[in-house]
Amino acid sequence: MNNHQKGAKASYIALAVFILIWISGTSALHRFTKETFAEFQAPALQIVSKGGDLARYWELKSRSNEELIAASRDLARINAALELRIHSMDDIRRENTRLRENARYTANSEFLTVVARVISRDSSSWWQKIIIRKGRTDGIRPGSPVVFSNRVIGRVSAVHLNISEVDLVTSPTFRCTAFLIGDEKRRIVYVRGDAANSLSPNKAKVTAIPIDYNPPTGQPIKVLTTGLGGVFPSGLILGEVDGGIRMSTDDNYKVADLNPAKDLNMIEEVSVLVPQYPTAHEILLAPSEKIKLEEFK
């Protein structure tokens, strides 16, 4: 028996030992490893994204003055319109605060909005996610909803130092409740990402649609967040029902496919709505050593 063969035998034994150690190892070890390698790669992601920004900057710099003048003229118009809107919004906000004070009900879902650029997208049949350029240092916490204007993009699934991972609406790990427009009784339906097929558009699934739900005719069936779950504010658009509502094959209700509100693979910038207080979801996701359940009771 030569050295090579001996080494081969030893390597298999070493492998078995390593697998054993890994399996019996604590979750802290797993987390640590994962976090280390994630942070190791983070700078590269940052650099590429910043490089993209730089390229865009130089591209803009090369524009002619005429173009810039035209653009700034357009912007000024939009600005004026928006300013008007801000005024009316202020009134509404004041009214809202007054009513809340009267009702002695302070909002439980005050969000801090963090705008973040998308660095990269990653999708397979089993997950669809994006990586954004804001992380723990920017105050982002796991479980926070991610939106673009009034559309739901997804939800933060993991937070690193300077970058975060976001599960898209179409990812099977995403789930939330919704109302369908035209349902006067406002019965909740269940939206969850669907394991997609490669080379075909990603979809989410809407289930538990009541049998007697009649979609409004002549317009797309919009799916809106309920605001009941304490994560998403109410009335955000999750998407539209795609291809009609059909009877479920296994259960006694209807199901439908959901086309996400925005082309999730094209999106460049998103807003993360970070709740002021940690949600139950966040507390449960946190490593048990850090936050004890009882502390919040």
């Binding site: 590429v48 990269s120 990653d122 999708s123 669809q128 490669s198 080379l199 558009p201 990603n202 693979n265």
Partner: peptide, 21 residues
């Protein structure tokens, strides 16, 4: 090797709608 791996991720990223890695 990392630049290669990273480049592969970027290709996956730009072709994310295909759902292929």
């Amino acid at each position: 090797t990392y630049p290669w791996l990273f480049a592969a991720d970027l290709v996956s990223s730009t072709l994310a709608s295909s759902g292929l890695n």
